[in-house]
């Protein structure tokens, strides 16, 4: 694993967290006691937080994807990360500090969730593989030049170019709250479930190539 700085809360290691410093001023007051309390009272600026979170959310989801597989668990973890970021996240620090903080929180929360999943014998990748994979995801996210908005926008335009049937398949896989939606679709269309998953695999490759093509042309 990459050698990381220590998080203030858990002792877990994570990159970029060292960039976030608690000495970052939250208040201009000269009285130390009043300075800290004034900073507490001054709630995080929703606009600032929104901007920071908007930049971090996709990375947090991608990072959590390397630990966990089911969507509801990931959504739960994102919620916890967001709340921690709201309460304790660096507000006035330079760009990457907030992302580093949220990924550090995500790691701690995800590891806790993974321990629960292992207890329930839900099959996951081995811990060493998860660790190296999550490091790879985090490194890629931190090195990603395109903003989440740009990435989603590029993907959205690729999605818009799809025909109705493949788009419906993607919606069933990623948007449906019914876990048996794909099985029902297979029964309704007379196809095997394996055929639908194969189709999904091809669609993802297609969309990945489409997004890569857009980013290449933009560069």
């Amino acid at each position: 694993m990459t050698a990381f700085a220590h998080t203030p809360d858990s002792g877990d290691d994570f990159p970029l967290l060292g960039k976030w410093s608690r000495s970052t001023s939250r208040s201009q007051s000269s009285d130390p006691s009043l300075a800290s309390t004034a900073a507490e009272i001054a709630a995080p600026d929703p606009a600032d937080f929104t901007a920071q979170w908007a930049r971090a959310q996709l990375s947090v989801r991608a990072y959590l994807n390397s630990f966990l597989s089911d969507r509801s668990s990931i959504d739960d973890c994102i919620q916890e990360v967001a709340l921690l970021a709201w309460k304790k996240g660096p507000r006035d620090s330079p760009g990457d500090a907030f992302l580093g903080f949220t990924l550090a929180c995500a790691k701690r929360i995800a590891m806790s969730e993974v321990r629960k999943k292992y207890r329930t014998r839900l099959r996951l990748l081995s811990p060493d593989v998860v660790a190296s994979l999550s490091d790879a995801v985090a490194a890629q996210e931190l090195a990603e030049p395109a903003t989440p908005a740009m990435r989603i926008s590029a993907l959205q335009s690729c999605l818009d170019s799809l025909e109705a049937a493949p788009r419906r398949l993607l919606d069933l896989r990623y948007s449906s709250k019914d876990p048996t939606a794909l099985q029902q679709e297979a029964r309704a269309t007379g196809k095997s479930i394996d055929a639908l998953y194969k189709k999904l695999e091809r669609l993802r490759v297609l969309l990945r190539d489409c997004v890569a093509g857009k980013s290449t042309s933009r560069e």
Binding site: L58, S66, Q140
Partner: peptide, 14 residues
Amino acid sequence: ARALRFDATLQEAL
């Protein structure tokens, strides 16, 4: 890792 990130992007887009 790229596939996982793309999957997350798909989730956020859809």
